[in-house]
Amino acid sequence: MNAFLAQLLNGLDKGGAYALIALGLTLVFGTLGVVNFAHGALFMLGCFCAVAFRYLLTIETVTVDPTQLSPWGQPVEVRTPLVQNWFGDFGAVLVDYSVPISVLLTVPVMLAIGIAMERGLIKHFYKRTHAEQILVTFGLAIVLQEIVKSFFGPNPVPQPIPTDLRGAADIGLLLGMEAHQLTYPWWRLIYLFFSLAVIGGVFAFLQFTTFGMVVRAGMADRETVGLLGIDIGRRFTIVFGLAAVVAGVAGAMYTPLLAPNYLIGMDFLVLSFVVVVVGGMGSLTGAVAAGFLLGILQSFASMTEVKSLFPGIDQVIIYLVAVVILLVRPRGLLGRRGVMEG
């Protein structure tokens, strides 16, 4: 039972990341009809927003302490972050909590990047074939990766979890078990709740605001909405920005779980496309449901008992599911009839 619950939590936590990325990808496909292969790069840019923010916070002053010598006989350099000099303990807290605080920076940065990307490049490819859209967005992703690589180098840049949020929550105690029988890292739980909150926020925004209503109407019938005198193009630009924000904040919060390098987006892109295909192209609920479903399946496939029956199944389970879905139900679990069929 403990093993089952631990794997379920692990699956939900992974699924949260998959769902967030797939949600943005689906938003763009559902509204603009664009297959955006640069979406993984947006996730990567979000990761590096967190990295850049920490770099800014940890700009240091260097003083030489002649009373202390290093093992090779040189005076020791004492480095102190500037914010700590300026704000004392509060500065130290800012550095410690750089990742969650960086989300606040990530939102406007990613919104600006998303809007610039849509206005500058993507809009010119609305009426082109999906193959051409894939080529141009894939090229854009490579350009973005190389820019990030030139600034931050090719290697992963670890981001720390805030000191107070390290360690594991004793979930077992809440369920009446003995202490330490079922523990799960705090940050992973936070990430799960964060992803649920973002998903909920996006759905609420589309469901309960006038803007969202117009966007949903535009997704259903763009021409009719245009005939009503509504500038649907401008709203879709903002939707693209929103998708970039969702991918970006997903990336920023993920950095303590996986040290990002410039290729991190590509690793997630393939997975998120599989999630979108399984969930149904253009279906927001499908993307979210498939994200969590595949995360949980992948987690259960990693159980020793399962792997002893099917060695290596944990590496291929997601792709196996995608193959089965494409064969049996090409429009995906919750896709609209006719999309990707026939």
């Binding site: 631990a6 794997q7 992974k14």
Partner: peptide, 23 residues
């Protein structure tokens, strides 16, 4: 008890660590 292989350069080991707890 078990010897489980993990891919080189994996990054996120959570799916391999959760089975350890109840092994």
């Amino acid at each position: 008890v078990a010897a489980v292989r993990t891919p080189l350069g994996l990054g996120d080991y959570s799916q391999y660590l959760t089975p350890v707890m109840n092994s």
